[in-house]
Structures are given as C-alpha cells and as structure tokens.
Design a protein around this nucleic acid. Structure first.
Lengths: 116, 116
DNA sequence: ACATCGCATCGATATCCATCAATCTACCGC
DNA sequence: GCGGTAGATTGATGGATATCGATGCGATGT
C-alpha cells in the first residue's frame, strides 16, 4: 500500500514543497529518502540493471532468481519495494509477472539529487 | 575506515568493471548501494541540503544539531557516514569542524543511476 | 594549570530490514 | 475437478542501523 508516487506520476506536482526554499523540509526529506532506500540494496540495483539491459526491456521473476542466487520470495519482496518506489512496473500476463522499468524514473531520481 | 572512494577520487577508474557488460556485477552493486545507503535517511538528506544551501557552503556540527532536532553524537555519526560515502568533506579549523559538499559528488552519484 | 567548549567515540538499546521455509492464490493443461 | 506451476504473502530469525547518554580528547580562554 501507500505506493510512493513520487516519480512518474503527474508532473503536475510542482518540484517540491517550497521549491527554492533554503533547505529541505522534513516531509520532503522523508519522501526522497524512501526512494533512495529502495536503491540502497545491491540486489535491488542488480534487479534494475538486469531488467534494463534485457533485450525485451522486461523480465519475469523466474528469470531473476537465478542470477541473484536468491530465493523466489526474496526476489518478489525486492521487486515489490522497487514497484512501490515507482521505479518498476508490474504487468501480469497469464501465469507470469513481467517487470519493466518505468520510463524516466531513473532520470527523475537523478534530478532528486540535483534539487537537494 | 575503508572510506568508499567511489566518487570524487581519481576518475582514472574506468566507469565500472566490465563497463558495457549486460548487467551489474555483484561488487559494483555493492559499492553503488553503499552510496545510496548514505542517502537513504531523511536526516542525512537534510544535512546535505543545509550544507549546500548555506551561504558559505559549509557548516559546523553545532549549526546542524538544532535544525534536525537530534543529539550531537547522532549528527556526528550521520556526518561521518556522508564523509565515508564521499559526499561531504571535513575540515577542522580550531575547535570547529566544518563540513562542505565534495564538488561534483552529487552529479557523479546521479550518473550512477544513468549507468545502471 | 584549570575550566570550558566543540566534536568524536563507545556501549547499550530499540527498531528496521534481508532472507528463508512454509503456505496461499491465481492460472493453465488434462 | 485435479495436479502442476508462477508468483505473492506470512512468520520467524539474524544482522544492520538510528538514537541516546556517557566519556574521551584536543583546542581555547582565563
């Protein structure tokens, strides 16, 4: 629940709360930290990398457990965190769940750093 | 110890291990995750923001404890993490320790996302 | 020399988080 | 309907981490 929605959604959101204020509000810091927290795990970074570098631009869970050498529940857990952070998108087709990068999400996350 | 040195140092380091390889090695993921881990805390993001937006570009610990409403040891601990991640620089002048942004560190961290 | 101040470090504690085994929930083929 | 498969959810557990109080340490002022 409470998917963060900081990234890809509207763009109608203005950049940040006061935007241009001298420093960062506690709420903004909290939301931005949540995104970086999703990136603060080596296995999640590798998941993003694998999904991104795949020729089809997407991957299902069964393709991801082996290269990470992790159990299926663990991979599922990490993928959920990345989806909640707005970095990955989940599409279920039949029995399989395909994960793909949210377009522009990585770039917008990079902008978070510039607008600190 | 073991300051990460992923960012500002040599540039002689090539971009990443295989650089262009299909995916991310476990070691690269580990090092990159360490930087994001430093950013994955709201109080540390606010520290970076305060240091950055200060007119002098630097701040000492005593200026940072109050706006964060944290104890001095805790702030010192967070600052150390940011220094170890290569994001902040510490300069001691007299009794005070002044912290300032490492030039280009945030931009290089942003590039980490693009080169996933 | 002594007291004080700024900051780092240490030890303890409480919370969070990554991982796994077991289970549950669709969905598919027979 | 039934077994099988892909994936999500749950519960438990060990390890990391955020925070604090107490202490240590160097520099400053008297």
């Amino acid at each position: 629940m409470t998917s963060l929605q900081i990234l890809q959604p509207g763009l109608d959101e203005a950049c940040c709360a006061p935007c241009g204020g001298p420093s960062l509000s506690a709420e903004d810091a909290q939301r931005k930290a949540q995104v970086f927290k999703a990136l603060a795990d080596p296995n999640r970074l590798r998941l993003l990398s694998i999904v991104k570098s795949g020729d089809s631009g997407e991957a299902c869970v069964c393709d991801l457990t082996e290269p990470l050498d992790l159990g299926q529940p663990t991979v599922s857990h990490h993928l959920k965190i990345l989806v909640d952070a707005g970095l990955l998108r989940r599409e279920k087709r039949g029995t399989w769940a395909y994960y793909s990068l949210v377009p522009g999400a990585l770039e917008q996350t990079a902008d978070l750093l510039a607008s600190l």
